[in-house]
Design a protein around this nucleic acid. Structure first.
Length: 227
DNA sequence: ATATCGATTATCT
DNA sequence: GATAATCGATATG
């Protein structure tokens, strides 16, 4: 039983999230370790053609700029990773394994690299659109996704696909502005216990405990033994 | 339930 | 030319 399931966002007449307000730039202008931990329980929103997709952030990883061999920014600024060196609160989207996009948010002040990878969300709103974007809609289900909701947003590649995130569209997007198609909000969610462990899928600097997740949440990625 | 493996391409050496 | 902050399919216990 995951916490947060019965914590719906209230929507006003414009279908805009009412009880959810954007996180300010200063939230992200801090060390990635801190931002990664505090992002747990916050909400990622995609607003497109008046339609909303939203998910509770339940798993993140911190990447520490120059002091972290596993970070994309470790070897210095390039065209690909430039957003990580820019001002805080912007989307860094990269393409990996010839197949998947992954979403990060820039941290620290401009000039200092650092970021947080979004690893898993608990779906709140727009599961049908997420299933469509993931190409998981089954025939004859009457527009309702009947499969396991974990297939939508449990994993960095999956959540990016579910939210229609691509580098072309979203790299450099301001995640602190509700006028953006993609932004991060805060509601009255009471955060559950946070757990920490080593990051996933990396070879360099693999031992550091920089993966954060909500204890026992079923939407945390990977096998049960990781939750 | 856990393990292994192939796919596929942007980016960097 | 090698590598990668992943996923889904398949095999095996």
């Amino acid at each position: 039983m995951s916490k947060g399931c019965g914590d719906p966002l209230l929507l006003d007449a414009d279908s805009r999230p009412r009880s959810c307000h954007p996180l300010g730039r200063e939230f992200f202008a801090r060390p990635p370790r801190r931002v990664a931990r505090e992002l747990l329980g916050k909400v990622l929103l995609r607003v497109e053609d008046g339609e909303i997709r939203a998910g509770r952030i339940v798993e993140t990883e911190a990447y520490l700029g120059a002091n972290d061999a596993a970070a994309h920014s470790a070897a210095g600024k390039t065209a690909r990773n430039a957003v990580l060196f820019g001002p805080p609160g912007y989307a860094y989207v990269y393409f990996i394994y010839g197949a998947h996009y992954c979403l990060n948010v820039s941290c620290e002040q401009e000039g200092k690299a650092g970021g947080v990878l979004f690893r898993a969300l608990e779906p709140l709103i727009g599961m049908e659109a997420m299933a469509r974007a993931r190409k998981l809609m089954t025939h004859g289900a009457g527009g309702h996704f009947a499969g396991d909701l974990r297939l939508l947003t449990s994993g960095p590649g999956r959540l990016a696909a579910a939210f229609g995130i691509t580098r072309l569209r979203d790299n450099g997007c301001d995640l602190t502005s509700p006028d953006s198609s993609l932004w991060i909000g805060e509601d009255d969610f009471a955060k559950a216990t946070v757990k920490v462990g080593p990051r996933i899928g990396i070879t360099k600097a693999a031992a550091h405990p920089l993966r954060f997740f909500l204890a026992g949440n079923r939407f945390v990625s990977g096998p049960k033994s990781w939750r």
